[in-house]
Design a protein around this nucleic acid. Structure first.
Lengths: 168, 168
DNA sequence: TTAAAACCTTTGAGTCGCTACAAGGTCAAG
DNA sequence: CTTGACCTTGTAGCGACTCAAAGGTTTTAA
């Protein structure tokens, strides 16, 4: 809302890359990356070879960023964009994609809750102030295999915060 | 337990890379990668230049895999291995590392629960059987910005399952 | 005995979604 | 006229693997 208002106030319909980035809550490098990846169409160029964008681009980029905020992959987003472009298709596919995506998230939450439990178990092994030689945690991690945890690896906690350091 | 029993039955104390991988629930390429990264010491070699491992390697690799199952980064694991190697140190650092890690996981769970809520909201927008032109989901995603979701991007759901496709 | 299958080696590239940097061109303000 | 803010392209890096190519070795079985 605020963004469109700002556009109306200036009453201009085109912009350069960093303004588009600002309005969509993204950044210029990401936009060029999306163009390379074919998620955004090639922008038209000014005399000095600057990319020039219209409100249509803003809408499409906003769609993409919104999907990314919902943690969809670029592949999933490409699929949604195809459906948006072909209105004769039934949107059952859209529902299915979203249902799959929700299932992913739910499963991941369950995995992380199990992980939290295991970590707290482990943390309970070592009261503060001991020496590493007697540390219950290191001992616990050296055991051949925890039966409860065997096999199912649950990565991906760290990536989330690392990629949140943007200047949006 | 089962692994060590198997080792005892064969009553051999060395093995090649793929057996080590099997016993530690890992795979050969990952082991070579850990060696390159300095998490595992360089293995000794047979006449034909094959890597030869002992039970000590199995224990260290098991430790590493166990930590990875708890979603620690290789950097965190390196730190823990250093503490394991220097028993005179106080294990307060170990506790701190683990506390930090638990906090990561807890925060991530919260983010994903919020994400799930948003996805279910969105899913409710479109009863099955409509055409894409009228699809409430696509409509919802095209809105400038959801006020509730604005700004905080929560990635990392997909990585977890992608890296689970190993043949362990 | 020999041929095939199953291992092992190194090197290098690919994954995902950006992010950052280098080296340069363009443009508006003071 | 210079400073600084913007823009361009191209390339490399992140983390933790994973895979493929191209070859050497060992085991198995016909």
């Amino acid at each position: 809302m605020a963004e469109l208002a700002a556009l109306n106030e200036r009453s201009e319909t085109t912009m350069k890359i960093s303004e588009l980035a600002r309005l969509a809550g993204s950044n210029a490098e990401t936009i060029r990356y999306y163009e390379r990846e074919g998620l955004l169409p090639k922008a038209s160029r000014s005399e000095s070879n600057y990319r020039i964008y219209s409100v249509a681009h803003l809408e499409r980029l906003t769609f993409i960023r919104h999907c990314r905020n919902l943690d969809m992959t670029l592949g999933e987003i490409r699929t949604l964009l195809r459906f948006k472009a072909s209105p004769e298709e039934n949107c059952g596919e859209v529902n299915r994609l979203l249902d799959d995506h929700i299932e992913h998230v739910v499963r991941r939450i369950g995995e992380l809750q199990e992980l939290e439990r295991q970590l707290r178990d482990l943390r309970g092994c070592c009261p503060d102030g001991r020496q590493a030689a007697a540390c219950g945690i290191l001992e616990g991690l050296s055991q051949p295999l925890l039966e409860k945890a065997s096999g199912n690896h649950v990565p991906g906690v760290h990536e989330s915060f690392a990629s949140n350091t943007g200047k949006s």
